[in-house]
Design a protein around this nucleic acid. Structure first.
Length: 566
RNA sequence: GAGCCCAUAGCUUAAUUGGAUAAAGCAAUUCCCUUCUAAGGAAUAGACUGUCGGUUCGAUUCCGACUGGGCUCACCA
């Protein structure tokens, strides 16, 4: 990598001045007029050595030879050393990208180079809503970023398939099935089966609140579910299968495949064993009829692991889950739980308990990746479903908008809709809430998924008309300002990807790609490609091909597919 | 009462984790189509980065105290 090369050159240069050469930082300055790379090492040394950083910077610069990959160096007060790459190196880089050689600098979360990303986690018998959509979009992007930087990634999904909400649903389900007719229900499309479950939940929930007798019945059903009782199993399994089929549709729609599905219902037996073990080890304690972890001494909240009735809580079930996750795929370096911030205290406590149980196995492994809520801009709610907004609803809204605006085929509109929604989530930093607006997400006048794809399509339509040939005899000094600006930006791509991975920040890739598209579109606007003279045409075609490739590769890392034609 | 997260242009967000003149999009005003997708591009205007202190060559970023909003703190998942 060129970055490593330049770092090495800098280290040598600093050593020659007789100053300590450790901790040299090399970054891309925010403003490209300050170079391709910049280092603040002179200012840091100036502070330590109590000397004028500008003088130190000058001395360092004197020790650097101006030859490839370095084109020029500029020193700016108070002591920035700005490094510009040579045009010929930049040109070489373009050739490599068009040839398909994009190498991302490696970044590992640990020595086994193996991480699990646990995301999605829907509850069966419930709808897949816009929160899940952001979750899965985020998880998928994180997974892809780590794969691109050299890690083996395991995609896992922990799904809730027990709990009172299911008992409420199942209490009312047989009644609703009867109304429709059992045979009629079987042939319903999956979406309608799920909406039947939705209605059952509303009915069950209402009756639970209003009727004490029924409340007891539902609590009993809940116990049956926990114990996987024969009495409930047939309706439970049938409806659970509906849910899983429905979730699979959603995963297909957004392009995610899991390596492993975990279910809450599988955790109970082992949870009881582990809780016993931890009581014996005095990590968990009896308190008010339940078994809890006293968090005060560890700066975490006290939480219940086994309730009064002898059932493991969600906390209790997290223990066997962690056990399975850390053994099913060999030794992992990290488990990234993609979950909203409201569960911070839950994870702090369960992570602490796991760590106390087996420090070697769990310490430093567990990580809670927090992301924010999704709201509709203007606070509008889906009229059909009360306050839950379905993922499909949001995707369909976007799809309809795209069809209307661009007259797209159904297939293209579908891909663009998924792109629009995913991109609108990913472009923001993770911890912030997203305010979704269909127009903002689907417009081509602005920072949107469709805009990026449009730029890709535009590149393609040029490339279709003429072939990219190997650049020979093109004089690097002939590049104009817009071309240089584009080429410099293209150069940064691999580093941005690695940075995005290491900082768990897919939005870095979004910002980068958007800037790239802006730069390309400006270049495109001002420079004829196909009508340029031979050498220039070849060069501009390579630039176009490189841009297209980077957009496609970058979007792929975000879990977004391009279309070839709009 | 305690803890965690958030606060940047009218709106929606960036800012490479302590760097340079805080960067974009939308909305507003104006300009560029006999053209490779104008489905685009350019220009102007818009911010003492919630408040008050501190740390230092340098703070949107770190520390402390506030203000406002969200979430969580014992048997839901």
């Amino acid at each position: 990598m060129i970055k490593d090369k330049i770092t090495q050159i800098l280290i040598e240069a600093v050593k020659k001045t007789g100053l300590p050469a450790d901790g040299i930082n090399l970054i891309h300055p925010t403003n490209s007029k300050f170079g391709d790379y910049t280092t603040t090492v002179a200012m840091q040394l100036g502070k330590k050595e109590k000397k004028d950083p500008f003088v130190i910077a000058e001395k360092i610069a004197q020790n650097i030879e101006i030859q490839d990959p370095i084109g020029s160096i500029k020193i700016i007060r108070p002591g920035f050393i700005n490094i510009f790459l040579s045009n010929s190196i930049l040109l070489e880089n373009i050739q490599e990208i068009t040839d398909g050689n994009i190498h991302f600098p490696e970044y590992y979360l640990g020595k086994n180079k193996k991480i699990m990303v646990e995301y999605s986690h829907p509850n069966t018998h419930k709808l897949f809503h816009i929160g899940h959509l952001r979750n899965i979009t985020t998880g998928e992007a994180i997974a892809k970023l780590f794969e691109a930087t050299g890690n083996k990634v395991i995609r896992s999904n922990y799904q809730g398939d027990v709990g009172l909400h299911i008992a409420k649903t199942l209490w009312a389900t047989p009644k609703l099935i009867e109304e429709v007719g059992e045979k009629n229900v079987e042939v319903l499309p999956i979406s309608e089966k799920i909406s039947l479950l939705g209605k059952a939940y509303v009915k069950g929930n209402k009756t639970y609140e209003e009727d004490e007798e029924i409340q007891k019945e539902i609590i009993d059903i809940n116990k049956q579910i926990y114990n996987q009782d024969e009495k409930i199993l047939s309706i439970y399994n049938k409806t659970r299968d509906w849910s899983l089929e429905y979730f699979n549709d959603k995963y297909d729609r957004v392009g995610t495949k899991f390596d492993k599905l975990y279910f809450e219902s599988e955790m109970t037996t082992q949870a009881l064993k582990i809780i016993d073990e931890l009581v014996e080890k005095k990590i968990l304690k009896k308190s008010r009829g339940a078994i809890v972890f006293k968090g005060d001494d560890y700066g975490v909240h006290t939480r219940v692991f086994l309730n009064q009735h002898g059932y493991p809580t969600y906390e209790g079930k997290e223990l066997p889950l962690a056990e399975k996750e850390t053994s099913d795929f060999g030794k992992l370096d990290k488990i990234i739980h993609v979950v909203t911030g409201e569960q911070t205290s839950f994870f702090q406590t369960t992570f602490k308990v796991e760590e106390l149980r087996d420090p070697v196995r769990y310490k430093g492994i567990q990580f809670h990746l927090i992301y924010g809520w999704v709201h509709l801009k203007g606070g509008k709610m889906s009229s059909r479903k009360g306050n839950i907004i379905e993922a499909d609803w949001l995707l369909d809204q976007s799809k309809n908008q795209i069809k209307k605006d661009y007259n797209s085929t159904d297939d293209v509109a579908e891909k663009l809709a998924v792109a629009a929604v995913k991109y609108s989530f990913l472009k923001n930093s993770l911890e912030k809430d997203v305010y979704f607006d269909v127009n903002d997400a689907t417009t081509l006048q602005g920072d949107s998924g469709p805009y990026l794809i449009y730029t890709y399509v535009r590149c393609n339509s040029v490339l279709k008309k003429d072939k990219v040939s190997v650049l020979t005899g093109f004089e690097p000094s002939k590049m104009n300002e817009l071309e240089l600006s584009l080429i410099r930006h293209l150069f940064k791509f691999p580093e941005i990807v690695t940075e995005g991975a290491s900082k768990l920040a897919p939005n870095y890739i979004c910002t980068y790609l958007y800037d790239l598209c802006q730069k390309f579109n400006l270049f495109y606007q001002k420079n004829p490609i196909l009508k340029a003279e031979k050498n220039m045409k070849d060069f501009r075609l390579s630039l176009t091909a490189a841009t297209a490739r980077v957009i496609k590769t970058g979007l792929d890392l975000l879990g977004i597919q391009v279309v070839e034609k709009m």
